[in-house]
Write a protein that binds this DNA or RNA. Structure first.
Lengths: 346, 346
DNA sequence: CTGAAAGCGCTAACAA
DNA sequence: TTGTTAGCGCTTTCAG
C-alpha cells in the first residue's frame, strides 16, 4: 500500500477490528482472536491479520475491551505524598512489579487532606481499576474507605494501616523499628532521648510513638512528654522539632526521628544550634531512603525495606484480584537498624 | 429501602444507568443527563435520580463513557526515572495540575532503556489517554516517537527534548544554565573547571555540555577533555567522576555537575578524598531539588524551576488536547543561579 | 477454523 | 422536559 492510498480509518478516522476485518474479508471475531494469537485461528490467517494490523497502525482499544471484559488491567495507586523519596521509591517498585504483570498504574495523590483523598479515590474508582494500592492521608478511617469495599474493589494498604477495615496490608513493624532505634541509643548511653515527628492519626506515627515509649520505659528511663514533638514527618518538622527540644531546660542528647525526612531536618536544625550529630548529639532516622547513606553525617536509621514493600503490595494485590475471597492478609516486613555516623556515645 | 431488599444490580451485579432508570421508570438518557447535572432535566427528576444513585452506590463507568465519547480524561506520563527527586517533584506538579483540570495520571517508567520505553509507551497508548507528557530515555529519536504522532496523540515533551519531532516542549534553557554556573565559577577565580555527568544522547546532557564548553572558551579558558566525565546523572556518577578528575596530574579546583544528584555524589567523593566543597573546592549542581538547600554544604546550583515545568507542561497539553492544530510550541524556562555554600574563591 | 449476533455501559441525535 | 435509538470497539457464546 503506497502513501498515496487513502486508508479507510472508519467513521472516527480510527483503525478498528472492523476495518481490518473488512479489508481481509473475515469477521471481527477472527481478527480479535488472531491479534491475541489464539491457537484456534489458522496460522495463515493470523499472519495476514497481524501484518495488516501493523501496516494500518492498528491500536488496541483497552477501553472497549474493558467494557466487555470488566477488566482494565489498571492498578490505581493512591499515595498521600510522592515528594517524599520513601514513597517515590516505593512507587517505582509498585510500578515495575505491576508492569511485569502487564498492569499499568493510575496515579492519584492527596497530601494529608481527607477531602482531597475522598475526591481522588472517587475518581480513581470510576476508571474501574482492577485493584488499588493505598497509603491513606492522616486521620483516614475505615469509614473513609468503606465505599471501596462496598464496590468490592480489591485494595491493599501500604505502609499506613487502617485497622478493622478488613483489607490486605503490607508495611513495616513500626513498633519494632522504634524499639531497635531506642535500644541502640540506650546502648550508647543516652538517657534523655527525644522523639521528633509523627502524628497519632497515622498508624506509622502511632506505632512508632508507642514503640518509642515502650522502649524508653523498658530500659528503665522516664518517659517525658516534653521530649516528644509531634507533627507530620517533613524536613520542616525535623528542623523545628530539634530546636524546640534543644531549648528545653534539660535537653536531650539524642533523638529518634519519625522518618528520614524529619531526621534530615533535625540534622540541619542541630547544626544551626552549633551542634553536630555524631559528635555531640545522636540522631536516628527511620525509612532508609537512598539519601540517608549520603548525608553528612551519614544517617543511622531504621531500614523499612520500602522497595520490597512496594513489590509485595503489588504481588498481593494481583493475587487478590485473581482470588477475591482470600482472607485479608497482613504482611509485616521486619525492620533493621542501619548504624552509620549520626549516632555516638553520650 | 431496607437492607433486606435485594438490590437489582443488573446482570453483572453492578449498578448501571439502566438499573437506576428502571427503578425510577425513566430512560437511561435522562439518568445520564441528570447525573451530569444537565440544565435540561427538571430539578425534581434530577434530585430523584441523584438520590437513588447515591443510595444504590452507583459508580460512573469511565470506560463506557470513553468508548462513546472518545475521551478518557487520562493523561499518560512517561518518565524515565521518578527516583530522581527532580522528576518526582515534577510529576507531583503535573499530577496536581492535571487533577485540577479533572484529569487523572496514567504512569509509566522505563529507566534509560529504549526497549522498555517502547513497550511502556505502546501500552500507555492503548489506554487512549487524551494526551501524553514524556521525558524520553537517553538515545530516543524522533523515529521512536513516530508511532505517537502517527496516532495523532497530543504529546508534550518535558525536560528532555527530541528535536525535529514537531512536538510541544517545556524545559529549561540548559545551555544558559551551564553559562550561569561557569560564569559564577570563573568569577570566583577558578580556571580548571571540570564537568561531571550528563550524556550526549540526551538534550539536557548535550546542551549543558555545550554550554559548559562555550562558557569555558568565552572566558578565555582552555577546554580540556580530561576534565569532562560523562555518564548518566546519578549519585554514583558524581562519586566516580569527582575521584577521576581529582586524580589527574593537574586537577581542577571546581566542578559543574550535570544535575543535583551528580553533585551530591561529587560532594561525597570529594570528602572521601579529604576535600570539602566550599572550603578547598567548588561544586555547582543543576536542578535545585529540595534536597539541595539542605546538604552540607548547602549546594550552589542552577535552579530549573521543575515544578513550574511540570505545571506548564500539563497546561500546554490540556490546551493542545482542546486545539490539536496549534503549531508546536517550545517553552523555555529561564534558569537562575542559586548561590549557596558549596562554592568558594579559588 | 470461521462467522453471526449480542451486549458491556454510556452518550448524543433526534423525536415527541 | 423526556424517550427512542443507535452505536462507540471489543469479546464471547453459539452455530456452522
Amino acid at each position: 500500500m503506497s502513501m498515496g492510498d487513502v486508508i479507510d480509518r472508519g467513521e472516527r478516522g480510527r483503525v478498528t477490528l472492523q476495518v481490518i476485518a473488512e479489508k481481509l474479508d473475515v469477521s471481527t471475531a477472527t481478527v480479535s482472536l488472531a491479534l491475541r494469537d489464539s491457537p484456534v485461528v489458522a496460522e495463515a490467517t493470523k499472519s495476514r491479520v497481524q501484518a495488516l494490523a501493523r501496516e494500518l497502525g492498528y491500536i488496541y482499544n483497552r477501553s472497549a475491551a474493558s467494557l466487555r471484559t470488566a477488566r482494565t488491567n489498571m492498578i490505581a495507586v493512591g499515595f498521600h505524598d510522592i515528594t517524599n523519596p520513601y514513597f517515590a521509591e516505593m512507587l517505582v517498585a509498585v510500578e515495575e512489579t505491576a508492569a511485569e504483570a502487564g498492569r499499568t498504574i493510575l496515579l492519584g495523590t492527596y497530601g494529608e487532606s481527607l477531602e482531597r483523598q475522598e475526591r481522588v479515590l472517587g475518581t480513581l474508582k470510576e476508571y474501574r481499576p482492577d485493584g488499588m494500592i493505598l497509603c491513606p492521608a492522616g486521620g483516614a478511617t475505615a469509614e473513609s474507605l468503606a465505599h471501596l469495599t462496598a464496590a468490592r474493589i480489591p485494595v491493599v494498604q501500604i505502609s499506613r494501616e487502617i485497622e478493622g477495615v478488613g483489607l490486605d496490608f503490607v508495611g513495616s513493624d513500626d513498633v519494632q523499628g522504634a524499639h531497635l532505634a531506642i535500644a541502640h541509643l540506650v546502648e550508647l548511653g543516652h538517657t534523655r532521648i527525644a522523639m521528633i515527628g509523627g502524628m497519632e492519626d497515622t498508624s506509622t506515627g502511632w506505632c512508632r510513638h508507642r514503640g518509642y515509649r515502650e522502649a524508653i520505659e523498658k530500659h528503665g528511663l522516664r518517659f517525658d512528654p516534653d521530649l516528644v514533638y509531634m507533627d507530620y514527618g517533613t524536613r520542616q518538622t525535623g528542623l523545628a522539632g530539634i530546636q524546640k527540644v534543644l531549648a528545653l531546660p534539660d535537653p536531650p542528647t539524642a533523638a529518634f526521628c519519625f522518618n528520614d525526612l524529619t531526621a534530615f531536618g533535625a540534622l540541619l536544625g542541630l547544626r544551626r544550634c552549633g551542634r553536630e550529630a555524631g559528635l555531640d548529639f545522636s540522631i536516628v532516622g527511620c525509612d532508609d531512603v537512598q539519601e540517608a547513606a549520603q548525608w553528612y553525617p551519614a544517617l543511622t536509621t531504621v531500614r523499612n525495606n520500602h522497595a520490597e514493600m512496594g513489590r509485595r503490595a503489588a504481588e498481593l494485590l494481583i493475587e487478590r484480584i485473581e482470588r477475591p475471597d482470600l482472607p485479608p492478609r497482613r504482611v509485616l516486613i521486619r525492620p533493621e537498624l542501619i548504624v552509620r555516623a549520626s549516632t555516638v556515645a553520650a
